[in-house]
């Protein structure tokens, strides 16, 4: 699968999906004008890639500064997908990176982290 690399804008996060290395990340602000249009293609590529994996190692970094409620549905979808992937026998690590003084992002990370049982979840406070 071809890697996906999209630069951040003031309202959309940087998407870096490296399918060869199984390293994925979302970084920045997320309140796109149209959430399905922005996330749709990357999300479906990731979904078909992860569904086919039976073993190996996958790492996903979330480093979001802000996301609106519509983007939150995408984050939830990604957590569900990553947990399912872990259930297929893949070693999945999810890192939630947030500014150490950002209580909102910390709380949201803890909440989303509760979705993961089989995947490894790390909260990473950034100085």
């Amino acid at each position: 699968m071809e890697n996906i690399k999209i630069d951040a804008t003031e309202r959309t996060p940087a998407i870096d999906f490296n399918f060869a290395d199984n390293r994925f990340s979302l970084r920045g602000e997320s309140y796109p004008e149209d959430v399905p249009t922005f996330f749709g293609p990357a999300l479906s590529a990731l979904e078909s890639h992860l569904r086919a994996l039976q073993a190996g190692y996958v790492e996903f970094d979330f480093e979001l500064i802000y996301f609106n409620s519509t983007s939150a549905k995408v984050v939830m979808k990604l957590f569900d997908l990553l947990e399912k992937t872990a259930g297929q026998g893949v070693a999945v690590t999810v890192n939630w990176r947030f500014a150490e003084d950002d209580d909102n992002m910390k709380e949201l990370g803890e909440e989303f982290g509760e979705e993961l049982q089989e995947a490894t979840f790390n909260m990473c406070a950034l100085r």
Binding site: S69, M76, D80
Partner: peptide
């Protein structure tokens, strides 16, 4: 918090065009 999670997971019928999660947020 529970309602927010349920809506995000699609477990709550939201009515038209995704209304609801914004107000909960």
């Amino acid at each position: 918090k529970v309602m927010y999670r349920q809506i995000l997971k699609g477990e709550v019928p939201e009515g038209s065009k995704g209304a609801g999660v914004g107000f909960v947020d």
